[in-house]
Each structure stands twice: as structure tokens, then as C-alpha cells.
């Protein structure tokens, strides 16, 4: 029974890894600490390094093929060995309870004595292959763990980000539309624009220096090196860039006080 489980694991591991990488299933078990660690450990500004994600994806694909081939070979070999023993030891199979570590050695001894077609060299070769496969199995297990961890991070990030985005952007937008409040619509639209831009650039690994603080703000995380310039009611008009001035005007027309901590083009518009 144990052998069947082993074979199944060996054969299916790459498929599990692959499916984990692509399905982006939310993992409710991963906590804030994991996310925080990753955000802090990767990238120059302490953010998630999307390059790493891309590399991991590539590794996942190459790992998939290695696992598939390895698994297939393993499965074929195991099936051959198993069917051989099934024909010879069919009756005693269920009674025997051999420890896992001695399984292959004992079987090979029996094979050696019972079947002349399998030479000692073949057995040796098979032993080596089995050893190799065991190593690969170990690697595959580690990879799976890493993918799972990464997946957890991503799913956690996505879940957290989109939950917050829903709470801070989507939901207020719906409310604003329902209320017919132009002020809130303008404010929320600009916030959406700000965060969607940051997220998009982050996802394509072309983030601006201010994108990370922007995302951290949305996810209620502590912001590091937030170098954004604040524009408030005391900022001299001459110190406001034209591309921001137009937004300030748009907000002022609606008597808005600003966009809180959301960063647009490196500027925060607040306390207007």
C-alpha cells in the first residue's frame, strides 16, 4: 500500500506543483507575517520583487518537465517491478510487512535468487536509479513547498490587496455613484487611477519609485521611504507641477480636501 502511495506521489508531484503555480488559489492559512517578510526581504525598496516571481514561474515550468519525465520513468519502473512481484509473491504480498528502508533490498535479493533473467548488474543499476529518483523526489518536494509558499504570498497579497481595493475604492465608488456625489466620484476615480496605475506597473515589473508606498498604503502597511511630495492648501501655486495642478483644480472645483495618502506621479494631494 505504501508503495502505491509513493508511486502516486512521485508521478503526480509535478502536476501538483504546476497546478499550484497557475491556479492562484487563495490560501487562507498564510498570515500577515509571511507577506510582510517577503515585502521586506525582496527588492531595493523593500518591496516584492516581481522579477523573482517571473523567474520562479520559469523554474516552475522547467521543473514541471523534469518532474514529468522523472515521474514517468519512476512509474514505469515501479509498475514493472510491482507486476513481477505480483506474479511471484501474490499470496504472501499482503502478509509481508517489510520496513520501507529494507523494501527494495529485500526484494532485489529475492529477485536475484528467483529470476535468472535479471542480472546482478541490472539490480545495481536499478538501485542507483532508485536512489536518484529518491533525490529527485526530495527536490520536487522542496520545490513544491517553495511554490506553495510563494503562491501563499501571492494569493495572500492579491486577496489582501483586492479586499482592500474593494473596501477603499470599489465600494466607495459604488456608494458615490448611488449618492450622486460628484466630489466623491472624482476623489474615488482619481484614487482608483492612482492605485490601478501602481498595481499595473508593479505587475509588469516596471514600478515607479512611488508605486510601492502607494500599494502599501492601500494595504494598510507601514510605509517605508515614502518620498512623495505633499501638496496641500499651503503649497504655493508655483510649486505645483502642471500635471498635478489640473487634478488639484478638479478636486478644488468639487470642494474636495484631497486624496489622502494616495500618490500620483510622486505627489500626495491632501488637506486642500
Amino acid at each position: 500500500m505504501k508503495r502505491i502511495i509513493f508511486i502516486l506521489i512521485l508521478g503526480l508531484t509535478p502536476w501538483i506543483g504546476f497546478s499550484q503555480d497557475t491556479t492562484h488559489q487563495p490560501d487562507t492559512n498564510s498570515g500577515d507575517t509571511v507577506q510582510q517578510d517577503i515585502v521586506n526581504d525582496h527588492g531595493e525598496a523593500g518591496g516584492i520583487d516581481a522579477n523573482e516571481i517571473a523567474n520562479n514561474n520559469k523554474d516552475a515550468i522547467s521543473g514541471l518537465w523534469t518532474g514529468l519525465i522523472g515521474g514517468t520513468i519512476g512509474a514505469v519502473l515501479m509498475l514493472g517491478i510491482t507486476s513481477y512481484f505480483n506474479s511471484r509473491k501474490k499470496k504472501t504480498q499482503e502478509e509481508q510487512r517489510i520496513p520501507d528502508s529494507k523494501l527494495f533490498i529485500d526484494e532485489s535479493v529475492e529477485v536475484k535468487s528467483g529470476n535468472k533473467e535479471i542480472s546482478a548488474a541490472d539490480v545495481k543499476k536499478l538501485k542507483a536509479e532508485i536512489k536518484d529518483l529518491k533525490l529527485k523526489l526530495e527536490e520536487a518536494k522542496n520545490e513544491t513547498t517553495a511554490y506553495k509558499k510563494n503562491l501563499d504570498v501571492y494569493t495572500d497579497f492579491d486577496q489582501k490587496y483586492y479586499n482592500e481595493a474593494f473596501r477603499k475604492l470599489i465600494s466607495p465608488m459604488n456608494d458615490a455613484m448611488e449618492k450622486g456625489s460628484r466630489k466623491e466620484i472624482i476623489e474615488t476615480l482619481l484614487k482608483i487611477m492612482s492605485h490601478f496605475s501602481s498595481l499595473t506597473r508593479y505587475k509588469i515589473a516596471k514600478k515607479q519609485a512611488y508605486d510601492e508606498p502607494n500599494m502599501q498604503y492601500l494595504m494598510n502597511q507601514r510605509m517605508k521611504n515614502d518620498a512623495a511630495v505633499e501638496i496641500d492648501s499651503n503649497t504655493p501655486v508655483d510649486k505645483i507641477p502642471k500635471n498635478i495642478k489640473v487634478l488639484v483644480d478638479l478636486l478644488s472645483e468639487q470642494s474636495s480636501t484631497g486624496l489622502d495618502e494616495s500618490i500620483i506621479s510622486g505627489y500626495k494631494i491632501k488637506n486642500l
Partner: peptide, 23 residues
């Protein structure tokens, strides 16, 4: 030189115009 992920190579394709250049 980098501003976020953006280098001079990406300035035109992904930059934020003169803002990124200044950065």
C-alpha cells in the same frame, strides 16, 4: 541608475516623462 524599476533604457517605454527623468 534606477527610479523604481525604471532605467534610462525604459524611460521612453515605461517612464513617466520628465518626472521619471528627474528622478
Amino acid at each position: 541608475a534606477k527610479s523604481g524599476d525604471i532605467t534610462f533604457k525604459d524611460l521612453i517605454e515605461y517612464g513617466d516623462g520628465i518626472n521619471t527623468l528627474i528622478s
